[in-house]
């Protein structure tokens, strides 16, 4: 049985070779980031031999803008994650457990929302925030993401899977609807909260198109948009090494979070795609 499921050696070799190909571009960027810019200008092959330097990272630390972008990304991603968890949990409980007029139809409408791609609504969103003169604000960066139907879908499924007997027992004890939700059912949904929270955080952190058109002021850039802005001046950039240090600086937080929460992230991404 186990021998049968062990893959043939040739396949293993091929997969290991592919894994090396996955890592090589990242390692290339990593070593370039430790090289002096003038040395790279002469010949990037010099990346393979010492001397190496931390100068590019010191330059990033010295330049305040990247830190502003990092803070913006942290604020926007955390706010969106908190917001999505709150509205999705409330709505998920409502749709799964409560009776109110129009419940079924409203839920079907929300499910249809899953099929609406960002491109179909982004112009309208931009118009709305223009009319309110609210571009270049945290509100504009966060609020559109809160309308994502996936969270409601996920939480509704999760609340439905919790046995109704739990609610009924609490109701006999005289607990209110909100108390049942807050004290008894919500703690049971923590695995789903983790999945949805991590998924939303990455979605927000890596979002590109919306912050690109809404946050046009350099002070309001998220890290993702800021890194794009430095790329536009690729040729006149401060130097390859500096650019690469920025790439490492921008990529490392997500990679570290990924390594810590790997199990949840894989589950969240697969779950979001499979709905």
């Amino acid at each position: 049985m186990s021998a049968l499921r062990r893959p043939p050696p040739l396949a293993v070799v091929a997969v290991v070779a592919l894994a090396v190909l996955m890592l090589v571009p990242m390692l290339w960027v990593l070593i370039l980031s430790f090289k002096d810019n003038t040395a790279l200008l002469a010949d990037t092959a010099s990346a393979f031999v010492p001397p190496y330097t931390f100068a590019n990272y010191r330059n990033i630390m010295g330049e305040g803008q990247v830190f502003t972008w990092l803070m913006n990304s942290v604020i926007v991603s955390l706010a969106m994650t908190a917001g999505v968890l709150i509205v999705s949990s409330l709505a998920g409980y409502g749709f799964a457990r409560l009776e109110f007029p129009g419940r079924k139809i409203l839920f079907v409408v929300v499910l249809f929302g899953l099929a609406i791609p960002e491109q179909a609504v982004i112009i309208g969103r931009h118009q709305i925030f223009s009319a309110l003169s609210m571009h270049n604000s945290y509100t504009a960066l966060v609020v559109p993401g809160l309308s994502m139907p996936f969270g409601v879908f996920l939480m509704t499924q999760y609340f439905r899977a919790i046995p109704v007997e739990i609610d009924e027992a609490a109701m006999l004890d005289g607990a209110s609807r909100f108390r049942i939700f807050w004290r008894i059912l919500l703690p049971l949904t923590i695995p789903a909260q983790a999945t949805l929270g991590i998924f939303t955080f990455f979605q927000a952190w890596n979002d590109y198109w919306w912050p690109l058109i809404s946050a046009t002021d350099g002070q309001m850039y998220t890290l993702t948009v800021g890194i794009a802005a430095t790329q536009v001046n690729f040729a006149q950039a401060e130097g390859l090494g500096f650019l690469m240090a920025q790439a490492v600086f921008a990529g490392l937080p997500t990679l570290i979070v990924y390594l810590i929460f790997q199990k949840y992230i894989v589950r969240a991404v697969a779950g979001a795609a499979g709905q």
């Binding site: 996955m22 571009p25 590109y208 997500t254 990679l255």
Partner: peptide
């Protein structure tokens, strides 16, 4: 290893 690049943003990926 194969999943790691998925968590990077498009701007980091294109820069790389």
């Amino acid at each position: 290893v194969f999943f790691a690049s998925t968590v990077l943003s498009v701007t980091v990926v294109t820069l790389i």
